[in-house]
Design a protein around this nucleic acid. Structure first.
Length: 510
RNA sequence: GGUCCGUUCGUCUAGGGGUUAGGACACCAGAUUUUCAUUCUGGUAACACGGGUUCGAUUCCCGUACGGACUACCA
């Protein structure tokens, strides 16, 4: 019988959610939705030293914005609550104790200095690896080398200790990764990782396995950085007697820097001028504000489409996917093995595409909001008209403001290159006649503005093509832009005439 | 250093023992547009290298190189 699909996204609240984390969450979500399964959000806050206030809320909000909905977990609850690992301490302690009693784990009392000394000693001896493992553990201070009385004494005295897994000395550990196939590691290469820390909190390695088992997770979909420790996790499942219930693993390829080597980092993003976080994030420690995709003008559907295709493809030429289409088409088998370079240009292309698909009403609303940032007001009808003629030429809503300030301001300056080339006697003649003719128009819109212009040109005897650039210059101060007649309609009759006259008075004929 | 993972146009990728190695982004050119952008058409551009196996390998195998991840009482 097929197991119910239950997947989890399990971030640490150590800061803002990285864009790579959004992709991991997305792949989990897509599988869950496609299989009619459950998407769980678990917060892995076992490292109290790295806890960042606000991070958890940020993660939840970001997923929400991206359209990744959570069925069970922090923020929504569910049958396996609590979903915050710091609230599950006793559970992990119980299983750690079980491992100790079975003889598969042991107490270790070594101090940080002692561990450091061990590593240095091994390094000096030319050992290939400096690990706490089946060989070196016999030289350390733990419940394997100490007598029961000594161990009891140390514990009664309150000497801090950790619990380590007793990794077998000679064993081939195999795991079948859904993306990479069989991965085999010899147990001699694995160290006796800490399961329980001296503060009573579990490490990732224990908490992860225990929770995935208890929460009946069917697929562990996580970043490739976990692949090296996955065999260790298999061992833990085995010792706990959960080998048959072990989830399937899928280790995702990493997101790489746009140029150079290494995985994508905040530094790279900052340097190249693109966001690394889904939404704005102000670091509570430094107070530094990092701009998010949302605030930079990216549409969630564009970001999702872009991210989905970074490491996965449908096997055909389709590139545009709605969330529903992604859910339909997704499969773990079609995830790539190699890391994917992050190319922001492609993300921009997706944004341009999805922006155009938006209704003028929706765009107008976003535009009005953008205008507020610049202390500019605009009625909806005007905003809609502006978006109508600007939407084909912009990537972000804010571009409409950047490239369309003339909708709100009479030009103060004129593009000198265009002026010297196109502002001539003929142009001045037509434009001044045009201004006069416009005054007597009763109805003023793009159609009548155009008809009036054609009329004027015929009367003056100069082709309209010869003076359009000059007219554009007079109206917008620029040499390029959207349809002029629509611009006139939007700014209105009075303003249009005023601008024509101003240009005539300001610009000198070359 | 060790362990594990990987390698097709600049980038994301399809493909797969015999192909003109396909698509998308970016780039370039032409057409359309009064301008710019859009749109349309076209173009440049890739199987890391060396050995096998094979009639034949970019595709399968083995090495090498290169890249990445991990190597904490962090996740």
């Amino acid at each position: 019988m097929k197991k119910e699909v239950r997947v989890r996204f399990a971030p640490s609240p150590t800061g803002a959610l990285h864009i790579g984390g959004v992709r991991t969450a997305l792949y989990n979500y897509l599988l869950a939705r496609q299989q009619g399964g459950t998407m769980i959000l678990r917060i892995e806050d076992t490292d109290q030293t790295r806890f960042v206030p606000g991070a958890e809320t940020y993660i939840i909000e970001s997923l929400k914005w991206a359209g990744i909905t959570i069925d069970e977990g922090v923020g929504v609850g569910g049958p396996h609550a609590p979903y915050r690992q710091s609230e599950r301490k006793e559970i992990y302690a119980k299983y750690a104790k079980q491992l100790i009693e079975q003889g598969d784990a042991y107490y270790a009392f070594d101090t940080e200095e002692e561990l450091e000394q061990m590593r240095e000693r091994l390094k000096a001896a030319g050992a290939e690896q400096q690990q706490y493992n089946s060989i070196t553990r016999m030289q350390m201070r733990n419940s394997l080398t100490l007598s029961a009385e000594e161990v009891n004494k140390l514990m009664q005295d309150g000497v801090p200790y950790v619990i380590r897994l007793k990794v077998p000395r000679k064993e081939e550990i195999r795991l079948n990764d859904l993306i990479r196939g069989w991965v085999m590691v010899h147990s001699s290469q694995i160290d006796d990782k800490v399961l329980m820390k001296s503060d009573g909190m579990p490490t990732y390695h224990l908490a992860n396995v225990v929770d995935d088992y208890l929460m009946k997770i069917s697929h562990v979909i996580r970043g490739e950085e976990w692949l090296p420790s996955a065999p260790f996790h298999v061992l833990v499942y085995k010792f706990l007697g959960w080998e048959n219930e072990m989830p399937q693993f899928a280790h995702l390829p990493l997101l790489l820097k746009p140029t150079g080597d290494g995985k994508l980092s905040k530094r790279d993003a900052d340097q190249m001028g693109f966001p690394i976080f889904p939404m704005n994030w102000s670091d509570p420690k430094t107070g530094e504000l990092a701009k998010g995709y949302k605030e930079s003008g990216y549409l969630p559907e564009a970001l999702i489409n872009f991210l989905a295709l970074l490491g996965w493809n449908p096997g055909n030429d389709q590139e545009l996917f709605s969330m529903d289409e992604l859910i339909q088409a997704f499969s773990l088998e079609r995830i790539n093995k190699a890391g994917a370079r992050f190319d922001i240009q492609k993300a921009q292309w997706f944004n341009q595409h999805y922006l155009r698909q938006q209704s003028n009403e929706a765009l107008a609303k976003a535009f009005v909001e953008e205008l507020q940032k610049h202390n500019q007001t605009c009625d909806v009808a005007k905003a809609e008209k502006i978006m109508l003629i600007m939407k084909e030429r912009i990537t972000f809503v804010k571009d409409a403001w950047e490239n369309g300030k003339f909708f709100f301001y009479t030009p103060e300056q004129y593009d000198t290159a265009v002026a010297s080339k196109k502002w001539n006697a003929d142009a001045v003649k037509v434009i001044s006649e045009y201004a006069t003719a416009l005054k007597s128009t009763e109805v003023f819109d793009a159609t009548t503005a155009k008809a009036t212009l054609e009329n004027t040109c015929v009367q003056v005897g100069i082709g309209s093509g010869k003076i359009m650039q000059a007219l554009r210059l007079a109206l917008t101060g620029m040499g390029a832009g959207p349809d002029l007649m629509m611009i006139m309609e939007i700014i209105g009759k009075e303003e249009s005439i005023l601008r024509l006259q101003k240009a005539i008075n300001t610009l000198t004929v070359s």
